[in-house]
């Protein structure tokens, strides 16, 4: 009863937030609705018993990715008239994507109507004696170890690539030498002079 209520609450809020992400006029509001949608998706994950995935969704998407989205969108000065000007020229492409998505949804509904997924018919049985963190770890680090490490290396290469592409050596910049700053002590910079009144200090 409580689970059913929670499911419909999360699902309805998520769908509504998804719709508002598209319809919101202000891009910052769009990002905030997107965050609401992520959060409710995490709630749905908890309901199906995948709490590890749910927490990762919140940490990675809500805690990091969406903060960066918000960061960028807040700094932009968006001109709505300019955005709307491109509407007609992008319309055919947009319609194509909409049609593909519609077909996918119809396909999904069709498959759903065909009958439930046979969980028992899978190759490996669901492990009942371990938490799902351990289950994911046991799979990722044994059977899928090469794919997992390949994904890690691709991310590393992407990160280095981004740094190399955006890094430029600028001349005339005075960088800070932290070690030198820490080594400095007051004796190097300050001189106490006991000067008689009425005479200037020789610098």
């Amino acid at each position: 009863m409580i689970q059913l209520f929670a499911f419909y609450l999360f699902a309805c809020v998520m769908v509504a937030a998804g719709a508002l992400t598209i319809f919101a006029r202000n891009p910052v509001h769009s990002v905030l609705w997107l965050i609401v949608a992520f959060f409710n998706a995490a709630g749905l994950m908890v309901l199906v018993g995948a709490e590890f995935i749910a927490m990762l969704l919140v940490i990675v998407y809500v805690g990091a990715v969406a903060v960066l989205f918000l960061f960028v969108v807040m700094m932009l000065n968006i001109d709505f008239a300019e955005l709307r000007a491109g509407f007609v020229s992008y319309l055919p492409f947009g319609m194509l994507i909409a049609l593909v998505l519609l077909a996918e949804i119809l396909l999904g509904v069709g498959i759903w109507q065909a009958g439930p997924v046979e969980l028992a018919g899978r190759a490996a049985p669901v492990p009942t004696d371990m938490h799902n963190i351990e289950a994911i770890g046991a799979l990722l680090y044994t059977r899928y170890i090469f794919l997992f490490e390949a994904a890690g290396i691709i991310l590393l290469v992407a990160m280095i690539g981004a740094i190399v592409l955006t890094h430029r050596a600028r001349s005339g910049v005075r960088g800070q030498n932290i070690a030198q700053q820490n080594r400095r002590n007051p004796k190097d910079a300050v001189v106490n002079v006991n000067q008689p009144v009425g005479q200037g200090v020789e610098l």
Binding site: E51, M55, I59, V62, V67, L70, F71, M74, I133
Partner: peptide, 20 residues
């Protein structure tokens, strides 16, 4: 819950939204 510490990490990463 068995992901208690991850839950705390997830919640503390939300704290930034109030400020932003």
């Amino acid at each position: 819950i068995n992901v208690g510490l991850l839950y705390i990490l997830a919640i503390s990463s939300l704290g930034v939204y109030g400020v932003v």
